[in-house]
Design a protein around this nucleic acid. Structure first.
Length: 589
RNA sequence: CGGGGCGUAGCGCAGUGGUAGCGCAGUUGCUUUGGGAGCAACAGGUCGGCGGUUCAAACCCGCCCGCCCCGACCA
């Protein structure tokens, strides 16, 4: 392709609303344009990279035997009511929805469990028809509360979603492993540094789930890794080995009722300093409203060490409820009798409809003794609390957030925290949707059984953006060869007959050799062409200019290394092909 | 949804009540031609929208819309 026949304009400066590198560079390179918050257009150049990604995913999915389908984006409300997700997503406010002229409601699908389950239940009646795995690559909609980071969190975005159907857990396990392998193949083909981590399964539901993360500082997710590489988890899910207990081996001292004044000091750090102790001896008591799936709720107290924070993703699961939220500050006095900072586990007053406020302690507090806790009176703490002696504990939970340096659950070494971009997520769904939507088949004993499902998402645009986050320098994008819009940029530096003829010949030869070449044949100065080629990030650059041509050579360089070598024109195609075959990391000469 | 900020030419920005500007990009001409050239001329604007105050509003006031950041929330 020749630039003079293309629609492409680069920008010297990034749009002011672009925040992350991938958005800035894709916009400057003229590949991507923002149309509204979280909604983007791909230009011809940008769409080529997106299509490369689509094809890689499609090839690897097909290789596993998965079957491509096309499910609707506009889905009738009744399907979503059937699965129970309409209310849930509407409450969260993230469901794009609309009405047709008869006021029938539709959702713009954020995922397609309902649609695919509906397709399957209309198609199967016998266990003999299983197993299979259905996938699609289509636009998804999520009215994110806060879209941000360019393509990394859009409201309209391209996603591959796959749904496996089996008669039993064993079949699901096999599908899950197959998908994990396919995802590894996909991200490896894209040349991305990625990690597989344990994850929370979130609103989709189900049991096991793991996330594929591209490691990048701009990532929204915090990831926890053991130093030996044996353990990796999203911080939402991560556990630690038991922490060292500061009170280990101590005798229990007599409980000191309200004997420790902490006037006006609400921070754990300040209280520890004031009381002459360390933060791990200060107990924080947090009051949460736990909301069950049937919308009933109760207030409970969570007791945790002052140097730790409660993980609000782990908490509802530990309590066996659907949701938690902190009790609003203005309601605290009616339950505790004091302001935040002085709340403690002893003497809480149950709100209406509740006999008592159950007190749960984090695992790290189970054996705590000789620690301070709030006295439910402003400016006052109790001293020498011993959990087993002084508290009526409703349960011991594992709800602390893992920290950098905490001991690894693998038993050796400590945990380290890195940031990552979630590009894929695989779930073992189980029978959640098949039961709700009566997607059943007859087993060999003629018993009707709900199908066991898995679901597997992969963000197409997000992965392309993640590739840019991971592969760029000050001058622009450095496309991994498999995702490059064109693999070779051909630059003709002057417009005299010799240069143009030599470039024309190379252009023809490269195309004939099956190389995707983008020829910058514009009437621009050399510097402009160099800058634009670097910005767009073609992995290999071929330059035809008066200087080198006078010596009878063209120049070939890689975007990554930027060291140009003079190559005889008849050798250029060969060198380019060899360089691309090696991933364009270094010139193959 | 809470807090903060922004909205002026394609992009980046200046302009605090009195003729709407600058840089880049664009068009034409001349010169230039190996890392975002120079000179000259030109073109391009409902100053986010609506309403108000005023002799006069990009600027002051009100309402609305859009966008960004922090937080809460979240496949």
């Amino acid at each position: 392709m020749r630039w003079s026949n293309y629609l492409l304009s680069t920008l010297r400066e990034a749009p002011g609303d672009a925040e992350v590198v991938s958005h800035k560079l894709l916009a400057r390179a003229g590949m991507l344009m923002k149309v509204a918050a979280g909604i983007y257009s791909f230009t011809p150049m940008g769409f080529r990279s997106l299509k490369k990604m689509i094809e890689i995913v499609r090839e690897e999915m097909d290789r596993t035997g998965a079957l491509e389908v096309d499910l609707p984006i506009a889905q009738p409300k009744e399907l979503w009511v059937e699965s129970g997700r309409w209310d849930r997503y509407m409450n969260d406010g993230i469901l794009f929805h609309l009405e047709d002229r008869k006021a029938t409601e539709f959702a713009l699908a954020p995922t397609a469990e309902e649609a695919v389950t509906d397709m399957v239940r209309r198609s199967v009646t016998s266990w003999r028809q299983l197993p299979f795995n259905l996938y699609q690559i289509r636009t998804k909609f999520r009215d994110e509360i806060r879209p941000r980071f360019g393509l990394l969190r859009g409201r309209e975005f391209l996603m591959k979603d796959a749904y496996s159907f089996d008669v039993d857990q064993k079949g699901l396990d096999a599908h899950y492993v197959k998908m994990e392998k396919a995802y590894r193949a996909i991200f490896e083909r894209c040349g991305l540094e990625y990690a597989l981590v344990q994850a929370d399964s979130g609103a989709i539901g189900g049991s096991a789930s793991e996330e594929f993360m591209v490691v990048a500082d701009t990532g929204e997710d915090a990831l926890v890794f053991s130093e030996d590489g044996q353990y990796g988890a999203n911080v939402e899910k991560a556990i630690t080995a038991p922490l060292p207990e500061p009170w280990a081996g101590e005798e229990e001292k007599p409980f000191g009722r309200a004997d420790s004044p902490t006037p006006g000091i609400v921070s754990t750090e300040g209280q520890a300093r004031h009381l002459g102790t360390t933060e791990d001896r200060i107990t924080n008591t947090m009051l949460y409203e736990a909301i069950r799936s049937d919308e009933t709720s109760f207030v409970c107290a969570i007791v945790i060490r002052g140097d730790l924070t409660i993980n609000e993703v782990k908490l509802p699961k530990a309590l066996g409820v659907a949701h938690v939220r902190l009790v609003p500050e203005e309601r605290l006095p009616e339950i505790s009798g004091c302001k935040p900072g002085f709340i403690g586990p002893i003497g809480l007053m149950a709100p209406k409809g509740q006999d008592e406020v159950p007190v749960y302690v984090d695992r790290t507090m189970e054996n705590a003794r000789n620690v301070f806790c709030g006295a439910n009176e402003d400016g006052t703490h109790h001293s020498n609390l011993s959990v087993k002696r002084d508290l009526k504990v409703a349960g011991v939970l594992e709800v602390a957030t893992a920290r950098d340096g905490d001991p690894s659950p693998t038993g050796t070494g400590v945990l380290r925290i890195k940031r990552g971009i979630e590009v894929g997520h695989i779930f073992k769904l189980g029978t959640k949707y098949s039961e709700a939507m009566k997607c059943e088949v007859a087993d060999p004993q003629q018993k009707m059984i709900p199908l066991t499902m898995g679901c597997y998402g992969l963000g197409i645009g997000r992965t392309v953006a993640a590739a840019v986050e991971q592969n760029h320098d000050d001058d622009g994008i450095i496309w991994p060869v498999p995702l490059a819009p064109y693999t070779v940029a051909l630059l003709s530096l002057q417009r005299d007959k010799e240069v143009l003829e030599a470039a024309e010949k190379l252009y023809t030869d490269l195309k004939a050799a099956g190389v995707e070449v983008f020829w910058d044949d514009r009437d621009e100065r050399p510097g402009v062409k160099f800058k634009d080629a670097d910005l767009i990030g073609f992995p290999v650059r071929v330059v035809i200019g008066g200087k080198a041509l006078a010596k009878g050579v063209g120049e070939v360089s890689t975007r990554r290394e930027k060291k140009a070598e003079g190559i005889a024109p008849e050798k250029v195609v060969e060198v380019v092909k060899a360089t691309l075959a090696g991933g364009a990391r270094a010139l193959a000469v």
